Simulated scan of single mutants.
Amino acid sequence: MQDGTDFEVPTIDIGPYVRSGSAADRAAVAAAMDDACRRVGFMQIQGHGVPDDVVAGLAAAIDAFFGLDAEEKRRWVRPPGENRGYTPPRSESLSLSLGVEQASRMNDFFEAYNVGRSLSDYPWIDLPEPLAEHYAENTWPAVPGFEQHVSAWFAEAERVAETLTRIFADALGLPADLFDDLTGHGIKVLRMNNYALPEGTAVEVDGDLVGMGEHTDYGIVTVLWADREPGLQVLGRDGAWHDVLPEPGALLVNLGDLTARLTNERWMSTLHRVKPPLVGGTIRRRRSAAFFHDGDADAVVAPLAGLLEPHESPLYDPVTIDQHMRAKLAGSRAGVRNADAVRESARVLGAV
């Protein structure tokens, strides 16, 4: 996919990994993945094997929940530290996770609902507080079919993410179990997003209209289903923001901060934002669902020695995934500017 400039979001058919293809076909996929991750860090994937009825079920579940009235949706708000349940509009500012101030804090107008893997999914693990906070139990709204459809999508997105990390290992020329060692009890969160404003409220937005502020995702890899509606923009290596529209049947995939750290920015996490068009004072509704594959809370992440060139120095100090995630979430959800995201914020501030 191209947007009329030299910027391109590559399309990769991962079918050879999904269907146990030949070694040659898998090598071709891994090479294409390495190229995409070096140049863009964002791609469209086909051949993922997610059934159409599972996609339709997810869309129906999103419509059913976000179609409830505001008072009913607010019943499902959870404490910010739990990263579960309902997030009302204008209660987050994703740019603060990068340490970048918006014109107005907590100005992102999207609303969301989060579910994820809980400690009960990993009965063999005994994590102390505060690490256990990343694995809060889910609450399911009283919407017919919601839990069933969302759970079906979650399982498919999780499978796709695990397939992608196997491709990543091959693309980097590293042991196949590299990412398995970081994700045995991974933090895995599905965030369903709705971009819309009640009629007549768009003109009241303070400052520049922000659907979801500029940010990088926090973990290893994100698998995104999205409407074919405009709004998603990716920051290219040219320092400009580029529109990205999903191809029919494709899933969007982008790299997160932990992968950038592991590869010493051979592959960089993808800066992106959502700027839905404002037409006649109203917002064209847009839906998405982002599955975050984020690794074990107690795992330590640092640049891999095997990927460093001779005399190349690590760009990042070792950090636990818990520490990294906590700083990011404190920015986006609690309004605490993340002072540690120096490299990422410099890219945003240099954008044109």
Rank of each mutant, 00 (worst) to 15 (best):
D317W: 00
A299L: 06
P318F: 08
A341E: 09
Y316N: 03
M268S: 13
L329Y: 15
A290R: 07
V336H: 08
L329V: 08
S269A: 15
L315P: 01
H272R: 08
L278W: 05
H272L: 10
A334H: 13
L308Q: 11
I283T: 12
P310N: 03
P276F: 10
V300T: 14
I283E: 08
A334Q: 15
L329C: 04
G331F: 11
L307Y: 09
G331I: 11
D298R: 03
N338Q: 09
G280Y: 12
K328S: 13
P277H: 10
V342F: 07
L307K: 07
Y316Q: 03
G306P: 01
K275Q: 13
R284D: 11
A334E: 15
G335Y: 11
L278N: 03
G306I: 01
D298C: 01
V342S: 11
R337N: 03
D294I: 00
E312R: 01
A297W: 07
R343S: 10
A334T: 12
V274R: 10
A330P: 00
V319H: 02
P277G: 03
P318D: 09
G331L: 12
D298Q: 09
D322T: 00
V301H: 00
G331Q: 07
P314E: 08
K328L: 13
E312Q: 14
L278Y: 06
V301D: 01
R286S: 11
G306R: 14
D340F: 00
M325A: 12
R286Q: 07
